[in-house]
């Protein structure tokens, strides 16, 4: 019991960081994913650079860069800010590929039907393509958000008192290693499979209410 209370306090930090970083990741994923399909070459190139840069370097290296290097440029970010934006922008790069893939997977015939109804490009995207892509991108986003949750454990290395940090601290203080780390793993598992997965499933059901994809 004496372990549970501090661990739950750490879990609260983990949940907060994960929730806010998810918002950042989703926003970045949408913007960069759409930018990769933009009609302007320069915008597309910029989006490719973003994705390659953030996927190509390691998340922990990125967090350290924000945390240790930026101050040398006179920019001091709070560790919470680094955690939220560092993780969000990293997962957002993967999310951009999900968004792009889902949009590209909407059949060409849907674009053509919308053109035949004289819809301008922005309207086609917003009303016809994105709603269909949205449903297709939910399952991969579910996986990404679990990756994001796991990624939040790295904020323990930039001084934030999240679940992992508290566990390491308790371990040194009490040496009840097995109990502590087992509990922590179970807590992460519950957050992933007990919260994120059902939430995404629920969204999937809502998004596909009524319509069944016809096989054409």
């Amino acid at each position: 019991m004496d372990l549970i209370v501090p661990l739950l306090r750490g879990a609260r930090v983990t949940i907060e960081i994960a929730a806010l970083a998810s918002l950042v990741a989703i926003a970045v994923g949408l913007v960069v994913g759409l930018a990769r399909l933009a009609p302007w070459r320069a915008v597309r190139a910029l989006a490719v650079c973003y994705v390659e840069l953030f996927r190509g370097t390691s998340l922990l290296v990125q967090l350290f860069w924000w945390f240790f290097v930026l101050p040398h440029f006179g920019i001091f970010l709070a560790p919470e800010t680094v955690g939220i934006f560092g993780i969000g922008m990293n997962i957002g790069a993967y999310g951009a590929e999900v968004v792009r893939g889902a949009i590209r997977a909407v059949p060409r015939a849907q674009h053509e039907a919308a053109i035949a109804l004289n819809m301008p490009p922005a309207l086609r995207m917003r009303r016809i393509i994105l709603p269909q892509a949205f449903r297709a991108m939910l399952p991969p986003w579910g996986n990404l958000l679990i990756e994001l949750l796991k990624g939040t454990s790295l904020v323990s290395l930039i001084t934030l008192h999240d679940l992992t940090f508290v566990a390491a601290q308790l371990n040194v203080a009490t040496f009840r290693t097995l109990e502590i780390f087992s509990l922590v793993l179970v807590l992460y598992y519950l957050l992933a499979r007990g919260v994120i997965t059902p939430a995404v499933r629920w969204l999937e059901r809502r998004a596909s209410r009524g319509w069944v994809r016809s096989e054409v």
Binding site: A113, Q132, V216
Partner: peptide, 9 residues
């Protein structure tokens, strides 16, 4: 269209 191309959503 041949394949209707209705908006499924």
């Amino acid at each position: 269209f041949q394949h209707f191309n209705l908006f499924p959503h």
